[in-house]
């Protein structure tokens, strides 16, 4: 490293050990020419630009457009691109559909793989050891803690995104939503319903029961 090479200070009283380590690795990758600072900033900006509202739009279209729903289930990457969402990394995307008979729950037991291209950053609980272990060992108990009591007759499929494929749940369209616009429907689709730990909201008194997704 040349002597005139200046870094922003890595050590900072308010910075955690982990954050310091991340910044140090980032700086090393830049110094070694593996990535540029602009590339890192670009990835972070694109990742932060996505929120569950993006996934919700895709779900709402699938609820109202059967042909799109078919394309989404057959080739989610192409269907997402149709909606203007480009998957930003190598990972592929698969959408799994919840029905009256089958419920899907998504987990990444090995780390925290998540469909960030459509949902943004995962919630902290998704990355916790507790969720990553319990979602496979006792998924029905986990769902109960999220407030979702699966009927005994419901077939449960836990999807562990162990490698290069990210999964998104297409939740069931709630009853009482006939005639609602795609925009209003999207307001019923929560982040949690696209992970499979909840169902989409039901409309309340004809108005959408939109709640925050954080």
């Amino acid at each position: 490293m040349s002597s005139d090479h200046r870094h922003p200070p890595l050590l900072h009283a308010d910075r955690s050990v982990r954050a310091t380590r991340v910044l140090a690795i980032r700086q090393l990758l830049i110094d070694k020419g593996v990535v540029t600072a602009a590339e890192v900033d670009d990835v972070v900006a694109r990742s932060r630009a996505r929120t569950p509202a993006d996934g919700a739009k895709v779900v709402a279209r699938a609820w109202t457009d059967d042909a799109f729903r078919g394309r989404l289930l057959a080739d989610a990457r192409a269907a997402a691109r149709e909606q203007g969402y480009r998957l930003s990394h190598d990972a592929d995307l698969v959408v799994v559909e919840n029905t009256a008979e089958v419920h899907h729950l998504i987990v990444c037991t090995l780390c925290s793989c998540y469909p960030t291209s459509l949902l943004g950053q995962p919630p902290d609980w998704y990355k916790s050891f507790a969720y990553r272990q319990r979602a496979v060992i006792e998924p029905r108990a986990v769902l109960r803690e999220f407030g979702l009591e699966l009927p005994a007759a419901m077939h449960l499929r836990v999807v562990d995104s162990t490698a290069d494929v990210r999964y998104l749940v297409l939740p069931r369209r709630p009853p009482g939503t006939e005639g609602m616009s795609q925009d209003d429907l999207a307001g019923l689709v929560t982040r949690d319903s696209m992970i499979g730990v909840a169902e989409a909201h039901r409309p309340e008194g004809g108005r959408c029961a939109c709640r925050g997704t954080s």
Partner: peptide, 10 residues
């Protein structure tokens, strides 16, 4: 859980 509950892994 149900006897036919499954886990899908890649």
């Amino acid at each position: 859980g149900r006897a036919d509950d499954v886990l899908l892994a890649d």
